[in-house]
Simulated assay, not measured.
Amino acid sequence: MQQTVVDHIERVAEDVVSLVLRGATGPLAPWEPGAHIDLALPNWLTRQYSLCGDPADRESYRVAVRHDRLSRGGSEYIHRFLRQGRALDVSLPRNHFPLLPAPEYLFLAGGIGITPILPMLRAAAASDVPASLVYLGQSVESMPFADELRSSYGDRVRIVATRQQGRPDFEALASALSPGAVVYACGPGPMLAAAEGAFPSGRLYAERFRPAPRSFAPNTAFEAVCARSGRTVQVPDDESLLDALTHAGFPVASGCREGVCGSCEVAVLNGEPEHRDDIGAPVGRMYACVSRALSPRLVVDL
């Protein structure tokens, strides 16, 4: 973990605040567009937020947080109780949504989904790569960084207040894509579903804040062999691998517990995982909060 101090809190839209976290002991770890961090809050909760500042700034991180009316305690704490000067621990940045090289980009953002997209647009513009942004929100007042985007990128940014204008025609946007152009999208589930229906899958990269609804076979029990200790942990059908390991004395870092943040990644040395995450586990890895086993036994590097 890295030690930071809340340097600045600013309201940037209806129900959205921006936090600038300054390194308490020196420069912070580097990051690239698409990365996020775990924020360890004083109320004992850990939450994940996309970095939306400038990767060249090694002195501070910027994140933005929307107040979720059904908050499980994270956004509510930040909006109601967090104050300037508070010390906060943050993780090293992780990136499951990297900006890959392309001759042209179309960025789609919905609401707070602008946070990983904003540094992507900045990077494309700095590299003189053609790029445009379609930014959706119910109203302009609800859309963080709208003024910053307008002033910095002009007509490369299209702001769409859906309450008045409706959702843009994604099929028309798809038909207008130039050869080689790729699409990066982040936002609410219905927006991403519409994008997935309009853009070719090989040209669309999307990040979700909540897992997409999917069905899996019923859970079955399996064994997790912890290779470094030689111990075997029984994982019953009504318990996650993450919880079984934690209860057995092998605490694994965790955050979302929904398979979207990647904080609970463990290495698999043998056996066949059943991947249930939404971010695509690398070969030889799995996310212990949601994924299980297709084989009776998994050997993990713990």
Rank of each mutant, 00 (worst) to 15 (best):
A13Y: 09
W31T: 11
G53Q: 07
G53I: 05
R62D: 06
V63T: 09
H67Q: 01
D68F: 08
D68L: 01
Y77P: 04
H79I: 02
R80H: 09
A87C: 08
D89L: 08
A109L: 08
G110S: 11
G111L: 03
A125M: 13
S127C: 12
L133N: 06
G137K: 14
E141W: 15
S142K: 06
L149F: 12
L149A: 09
D155W: 12
R156Y: 08
R156V: 11
D169E: 14
F170M: 13
A172L: 04
S175E: 15
S178G: 11
P179R: 03
C186H: 00
G187I: 09
M191T: 12
P200S: 05
P200T: 05
S201L: 03
G202Q: 13
L204Y: 07
F209K: 07
R210K: 14
N219F: 15
A221D: 10
A224K: 03
A224M: 01
A227T: 00
L242R: 02
A244T: 02
T246L: 05
G249W: 07
G262V: 05
A267R: 15
L269Q: 06
G271T: 00
E274M: 13
E274P: 15
I279F: 11
V283D: 12
G284N: 13
C289Y: 01
V300G: 00
D301N: 15
